[in-house]
Design a protein around this nucleic acid. Structure first.
Length: 323
DNA sequence: TTCCAGGTAGTCG
DNA sequence: CGACTACCTGGA
């Protein structure tokens, strides 16, 4: 199935590449080939290979699946993933009211939240991203999918689903545990690599396993999606490896809760520079400030400020000045 | 080679 | 509460 999603079907501009490549921690960037972005996405429980490309202001959508999917369900999913129901022009009106935020508009024209297509994958990605580079956690997620996800082939391309909470919860944590579970007689120099730590997640392996177990047994993602932001925040904070920053990333990029204001060290530096005269203010205070100051636009403001700071050279200035 | 980035959990006051 | 530090790993 192939069709165009025209600009009159969503609110404000949409820059696909900017949205997908802005380093949001919910999911690794989608596979790109000559401007076409592809990913295996579940639509009404049906595995579907989505291909999305920018065509002027429109989005060109191509979808393949074993069984038929209605165009309506497909469109709905696309709107959700790229946050197309959010009115960017309204955001720009808001940003223009603050001279400190106004410059971000030009740098981020058309950039939207890139909402995770799989909330569980988003949670594991976010835990893996804590204290870690984008390159490293993206690799880990890729390895996890490759090792334990279900493969789907479309033409000559292969994609893997992200494994379920049940599967992750039962994985060996590291080499030693994998060795202990193995009853076969193996050569002396056998390399154990079917464990989580072998995917480069480091000490987060135990958090990931325990989190998967809790999601499997006691915490319903379905319910979190329906909670208000405050309750959802308190609930996912219970997951091991999830602190305030990761919780806000999950709620923003995984569940589309726009009032979340994830504060990492970069955002802290940017906010201290812009709003506190370069003074060092503690992270929890920055979070309070952001939520109070930016309200329902806190999430987008965080996204825009970060991208703006990176592209304008402000970020470099803040690191070398070390303040 | 050593050093360092970068959130969370744990400990201590 | 706030301040401090260990934690895996990969890139400088």
């Amino acid at each position: 199935m192939e069709f165009l999603l025209n600009p009159d079907e969503f609110k404000g501009p949409c820059n696909l590449s900017l949205t997908i490549n802005s380093g949001q921690t919910s999911q690794p960037a989608w596979k790109e080939n000559q401007g076409v972005f592809s990913e295996l996405v579940s639509i009404k429980k049906e595995a579907c290979l989505l291909k999305v490309a920018q065509q002027d202001g429109s989005l060109k959508i191509n979808a393949e699946s074993r069984n038929n999917i209605s165009e309506k369900a497909l469109k709905q999913r696309i709107r959700q993933i790229f946050d197309l129901d959010f009115d960017l022009d309204q955001l720009y009106d808001f940003l223009r009211e603050d001279p400190k935020l106004e410059p971000t508009i030009d740098f981020c024209q058309g950039m939207r939240l890139f909402i995770a297509h799989d909330p569980f994958e988003c949670i594991i990605s976010s835990i893996s991203s804590a204290n870690c580079s984008i390159l490293r956690w993206s690799r880990s997620i890729r390895d996890i999918k490759y090792k334990w996800g279900n493969p789907y082939s479309f033409g000559d391309e292969s994609f893997y689903t992200f494994p379920s909470p049940k599967i992750i919860s039962q994985l060996p944590e590291h080499d030693l545990e994998e060795m202990q579970r193995c009853e076969d007689h193996l050569p002396e120099d056998f390399q154990f690599n079917n464990n989580l730590q072998a995917c480069g997640v480091g000490y987060r392996a135990k958090y990931i396993i325990k989190t998967a177990e809790m999601i499997q047994n006691e915490i319903s993602l379905h319910k979190i999606a329906k909670m208000d932001y405050g309750d959802a925040f308190d609930t996912i904070l219970e997951l091991p490896g999830v602190g305030p920053k990761v919780a806000d990333c999950i709620l923003l990029y995984g569940f589309g809760m726009g009032e979340a204001f994830p504060v990492d060290v970069w955002i802290k530096r940017i906010i201290c520079h812009l709003y506190f005269d370069g003074k060092d203010v503690a992270v929890p205070k920055i979070r309070d400030f952001g939520m109070e100051q930016f309200g329902e636009y806190a999430g987008y403001t965080q996204l825009y400020l970060f991208h703006y700071a990176r592209k304008s050279g402000l970020l470099d200035k803040l690191t070398t000045k070390k303040k």
